[in-house]
Protein backbone atom coordinates (compact mmCIF):
# COMPACT_ATOMS: atom_id res chain seq x y z
CA UNK A 1 0.00 0.00 0.00
CA UNK A 2 1.21 3.53 -0.77
CA UNK A 3 -0.53 6.45 0.83
CA UNK A 4 0.14 10.18 0.32
CA UNK A 5 -1.54 11.91 3.23
CA UNK A 6 -5.29 11.48 2.56
CA UNK A 7 -4.78 9.88 -0.86
CA UNK A 8 -4.29 6.14 -1.19
CA UNK A 9 -2.43 5.70 -4.47
CA UNK A 10 -2.04 1.91 -4.29
CA UNK A 11 -4.01 -0.39 -2.02
CA UNK A 12 -3.72 -4.12 -1.40
CA UNK A 13 -1.71 -4.73 -4.54
CA UNK A 14 -0.20 -8.20 -4.84
CA UNK A 15 1.79 -9.05 -7.96
CA UNK A 16 3.95 -12.10 -8.57
CA UNK A 17 6.03 -12.27 -11.74
CA UNK A 18 7.28 -15.65 -12.92
CA UNK A 19 10.51 -16.01 -14.91
CA UNK A 20 9.81 -15.75 -18.64
CA UNK A 21 6.61 -13.82 -18.14
CA UNK A 22 5.59 -10.45 -19.61
CA UNK A 23 2.80 -8.92 -17.56
CA UNK A 24 0.82 -5.89 -18.65
CA UNK A 25 -0.36 -3.28 -16.17
CA UNK A 26 -3.27 -1.32 -17.59
CA UNK A 27 -5.62 1.18 -16.03
CA UNK A 28 -7.10 4.63 -16.43
CA UNK A 29 -5.14 7.81 -15.62
CA UNK A 30 -4.46 8.08 -11.88
CA UNK A 31 -5.06 4.36 -11.30
CA UNK A 32 -1.72 4.00 -9.47
CA UNK A 33 0.35 2.29 -12.20
CA UNK A 34 3.35 4.64 -11.95
CA UNK A 35 3.25 4.63 -8.13
CA UNK A 36 3.20 0.83 -8.13
CA UNK A 37 6.23 0.67 -10.44
CA UNK A 38 8.06 3.31 -8.39
CA UNK A 39 7.45 1.32 -5.22
CA UNK A 40 8.75 -1.90 -6.78
CA UNK A 41 11.80 -0.12 -8.22
CA UNK A 42 12.70 1.30 -4.79
CA UNK A 43 12.30 4.92 -5.85
CA UNK A 44 9.60 5.35 -3.20
CA UNK A 45 8.83 3.19 -0.19
CA UNK A 46 5.42 1.63 0.28
CA UNK A 47 3.56 2.82 3.36
CA UNK A 48 2.71 -0.77 4.16
CA UNK A 49 3.58 -4.19 2.73
CA UNK A 50 6.67 -5.93 1.36
CA UNK A 51 8.31 -6.12 -2.03
CA UNK A 52 10.74 -8.88 -2.92
CA UNK A 53 12.81 -9.02 -6.07
CA UNK A 54 14.40 -12.41 -6.80
CA UNK A 55 14.28 -13.12 -3.08
CA UNK A 56 15.68 -9.77 -1.97
CA UNK A 57 13.51 -7.48 0.11
CA UNK A 58 13.59 -4.03 -1.54
CA UNK A 59 13.60 -2.31 1.84
CA UNK A 60 16.14 -4.45 3.68
CA UNK A 61 18.44 -5.27 0.71
CA UNK A 62 17.79 -2.27 -1.48
CA UNK A 63 20.99 -2.39 -3.53
CA UNK A 64 20.86 -6.12 -4.16
CA UNK A 65 17.26 -5.85 -5.29
CA UNK A 66 17.94 -2.85 -7.52
CA UNK A 67 20.89 -4.65 -9.11
CA UNK A 68 18.40 -7.20 -10.44
CA UNK A 69 15.89 -4.62 -11.60
CA UNK A 70 15.74 -2.42 -14.68
CA UNK A 71 13.41 0.56 -14.45
CA UNK A 72 12.32 2.65 -17.41
CA UNK A 73 10.51 5.76 -16.13
CA UNK A 74 7.56 7.36 -17.90
CA UNK A 75 8.75 10.21 -20.17
CA UNK A 76 12.35 9.81 -19.02
CA UNK A 77 14.74 12.74 -19.00
CA UNK A 78 18.25 11.56 -19.80
CA UNK A 79 21.16 13.84 -18.83
CA UNK A 80 21.18 16.37 -21.65
CA UNK A 81 24.84 17.27 -21.42
CA UNK A 82 26.08 13.71 -21.89
CA UNK A 83 26.47 12.11 -25.28
CA UNK A 84 24.42 9.03 -26.07
CA UNK A 85 27.40 6.73 -25.47
CA UNK A 86 28.44 8.57 -22.29
CA UNK A 87 24.92 8.07 -21.00
CA UNK A 88 25.20 4.34 -21.60
CA UNK A 89 28.60 4.42 -19.88
CA UNK A 90 27.15 6.25 -16.89
CA UNK A 91 24.39 3.67 -16.44
CA UNK A 92 26.90 0.83 -16.90
CA UNK A 93 29.09 2.30 -14.12
CA UNK A 94 26.03 2.65 -11.87
CA UNK A 95 25.17 -1.04 -12.37
CA UNK A 96 28.79 -2.23 -12.43
CA UNK A 97 28.59 -3.69 -15.93
CA UNK A 98 31.25 -1.69 -17.79
CA UNK A 99 32.98 -4.88 -18.93
CA UNK A 100 30.08 -5.86 -21.20
CA UNK A 101 29.19 -2.35 -22.29
CA UNK A 102 31.26 -2.21 -25.48
CA UNK A 103 29.67 -5.17 -27.25
CA UNK A 104 26.27 -5.11 -25.68
CA UNK A 105 25.84 -1.33 -25.78
CA UNK A 106 26.68 -1.10 -29.46
CA UNK A 107 24.32 -3.94 -30.28
CA UNK A 108 21.43 -2.34 -28.39
CA UNK A 109 22.07 1.05 -29.99
CA UNK A 110 22.22 -0.61 -33.40
CA UNK A 111 18.91 -2.37 -32.86
CA UNK A 112 17.22 0.84 -31.73
CA UNK A 113 18.85 2.80 -34.59
CA UNK A 114 20.82 5.09 -32.33
CA UNK A 115 24.32 3.91 -33.19
CA UNK A 116 25.00 6.73 -35.65
CA UNK A 117 24.01 9.23 -32.93
CA UNK A 118 26.31 7.74 -30.29
CA UNK A 119 28.54 10.81 -30.09
CA UNK A 120 25.73 13.38 -30.15
CA UNK A 121 24.67 15.21 -27.02
CA UNK A 122 21.34 14.03 -25.63
CA UNK A 123 19.92 17.54 -25.90
CA UNK A 124 20.10 17.27 -29.69
CA UNK A 125 17.87 14.17 -29.71
CA UNK A 126 14.15 14.22 -30.42
CA UNK A 127 11.66 13.06 -27.76
CA UNK A 128 11.34 9.64 -29.38
CA UNK A 129 15.11 9.21 -29.52
CA UNK A 130 15.44 10.14 -25.85
CA UNK A 131 12.85 7.46 -25.10
CA UNK A 132 14.88 4.96 -27.13
CA UNK A 133 18.05 5.94 -25.27
CA UNK A 134 16.35 5.42 -21.90
CA UNK A 135 15.06 2.07 -23.15
CA UNK A 136 18.56 1.13 -24.31
CA UNK A 137 19.92 1.98 -20.85
CA UNK A 138 17.43 -0.44 -19.28
CA UNK A 139 18.96 -3.33 -21.24
CA UNK A 140 22.64 -2.68 -20.45
CA UNK A 141 22.79 -4.87 -17.37
CA UNK A 142 21.47 -8.38 -16.88
CA UNK A 143 18.30 -7.55 -15.02
CA UNK A 144 15.96 -10.26 -13.90
CA UNK A 145 12.91 -8.02 -13.67
CA UNK A 146 12.09 -5.19 -16.07
CA UNK A 147 9.74 -2.44 -14.91
CA UNK A 148 8.67 -0.48 -17.96
CA UNK A 149 6.43 2.57 -17.50
CA UNK A 150 4.81 3.57 -20.80
CA UNK A 151 7.91 2.40 -22.68
CA UNK A 152 6.63 3.03 -26.20
CA UNK A 153 5.61 6.65 -25.77
CA UNK A 154 7.02 8.76 -28.61
CA UNK A 155 8.83 5.85 -30.32
CA UNK A 156 8.43 5.32 -34.06
CA UNK A 157 6.74 2.04 -35.18
CA UNK A 158 10.04 0.43 -36.10
CA UNK A 159 11.53 1.32 -32.73
CA UNK A 160 8.43 0.03 -30.97
CA UNK A 161 8.64 -3.31 -32.78
CA UNK A 162 12.36 -3.69 -32.03
CA UNK A 163 11.87 -2.76 -28.39
CA UNK A 164 9.04 -5.23 -27.90
CA UNK A 165 11.16 -7.93 -29.51
CA UNK A 166 13.91 -7.15 -27.01
CA UNK A 167 11.40 -7.50 -24.18
CA UNK A 168 10.22 -10.87 -25.51
CA UNK A 169 13.82 -12.07 -25.95
CA UNK A 170 14.57 -11.10 -22.37
CA UNK A 171 11.55 -13.09 -21.21
CA UNK A 172 12.69 -16.08 -23.28
CA UNK A 173 16.02 -15.84 -21.49
CA UNK A 174 14.31 -16.20 -18.10
CA UNK A 175 13.69 -12.56 -17.26
CA UNK A 176 10.31 -11.10 -16.34
CA UNK A 177 8.77 -7.78 -17.34
CA UNK A 178 5.99 -5.65 -15.91
CA UNK A 179 4.83 -3.22 -18.59
CA UNK A 180 2.56 -0.32 -17.76
CA UNK A 181 0.83 0.92 -20.89
CA UNK A 182 -2.16 2.75 -22.31
CA UNK A 183 -1.74 1.05 -25.66
CA UNK A 184 -4.09 -1.87 -25.17
CA UNK A 185 -3.34 -3.43 -28.57
CA UNK A 186 0.29 -3.80 -27.53
CA UNK A 187 -0.65 -5.24 -24.15
CA UNK A 188 -2.94 -7.73 -25.89
CA UNK A 189 -0.23 -8.72 -28.36
CA UNK A 190 2.85 -8.88 -26.14
CA UNK A 191 1.74 -9.70 -22.61
CA UNK A 192 1.16 -13.20 -21.23
CA UNK A 193 -0.96 -11.87 -18.45
CA UNK A 194 -2.74 -8.59 -17.80
CA UNK A 195 -3.51 -6.75 -14.59
CA UNK A 196 -6.27 -4.14 -14.72
CA UNK A 197 -5.73 -1.49 -12.09
CA UNK A 198 -8.33 1.03 -10.98
CA UNK A 199 -8.11 3.47 -8.05
CA UNK A 200 -5.05 1.69 -6.72
CA UNK A 201 -6.55 -1.80 -6.70
CA UNK A 202 -6.46 -4.74 -9.10
CA UNK A 203 -9.93 -5.26 -10.50
CA UNK A 204 -9.11 -8.00 -12.99
CA UNK A 205 -6.17 -10.30 -13.65
CA UNK A 206 -5.24 -13.04 -16.08
CA UNK A 207 -5.00 -13.81 -19.78
CA UNK A 208 -7.23 -12.12 -22.34
CA UNK A 209 -9.94 -14.78 -21.96
CA UNK A 210 -10.02 -14.40 -18.21
CA UNK A 211 -10.26 -10.64 -18.48
CA UNK A 212 -13.11 -11.00 -20.98
CA UNK A 213 -14.80 -13.46 -18.66
CA UNK A 214 -14.41 -11.08 -15.73
CA UNK A 215 -16.02 -8.34 -17.85
CA UNK A 216 -18.84 -10.75 -18.79
CA UNK A 217 -18.01 -10.49 -22.49
CA UNK A 218 -18.06 -13.45 -24.85
CA UNK A 219 -15.61 -12.05 -27.33
CA UNK A 220 -14.10 -8.80 -28.43
CA UNK A 221 -10.81 -7.12 -27.77
CA UNK A 222 -9.01 -6.14 -24.60
CA UNK A 223 -10.17 -2.56 -25.12
CA UNK A 224 -13.84 -3.60 -24.82
CA UNK A 225 -13.18 -5.60 -21.67
CA UNK A 226 -11.07 -2.80 -20.20
CA UNK A 227 -13.75 -0.17 -20.79
CA UNK A 228 -16.49 -2.39 -19.37
CA UNK A 229 -14.48 -3.18 -16.26
CA UNK A 230 -13.29 0.35 -15.50
CA UNK A 231 -16.69 1.92 -16.19
CA UNK A 232 -18.48 -0.56 -13.93
CA UNK A 233 -15.84 0.13 -11.25
CA UNK A 234 -16.47 3.87 -11.51
CA UNK A 235 -20.23 3.35 -11.37
CA UNK A 236 -19.85 1.14 -8.30
CA UNK A 237 -17.84 3.88 -6.56
Amino acid sequence: MKRYRETTAVDGLSITLQPGEVVGLVGPNGAGKTTALRCISGVVRPTDGRIRVVGYDVRAHEREAKQRLAFLAELPNPYELLTVWEHMQFVAIAYGTEDILKDRGEEILHRLRLLDRRNDLVLTLSKGMKQKLAAACAFIHDAKVYLLDEPLMGMDPKGQREFLEMVRETASGGGAALVSTHILDTAERVCDRILVLSRGRIIAEGGLDEIRHRAALDGGRLEDAFLTLTESEETAE
Binding site: G42, V43, Q67, L69, F90, A94, G96, A134
Partner: peptide, 9 residues
Amino acid sequence: LDFLFPAPI
Protein backbone atom coordinates in the same frame (compact mmCIF):
# COMPACT_ATOMS: atom_id res chain seq x y z
CA LEU B 1 15.07 10.80 -10.42
CA ASP B 2 14.84 8.72 -13.60
CA PHE B 3 18.32 7.21 -13.67
CA LEU B 4 20.11 7.56 -10.30
CA PHE B 5 17.32 6.74 -7.86
CA PRO B 6 16.53 3.31 -9.35
CA ALA B 7 20.23 2.35 -9.66
CA PRO B 8 21.91 0.10 -7.09
CA ILE B 9 24.03 2.87 -5.61
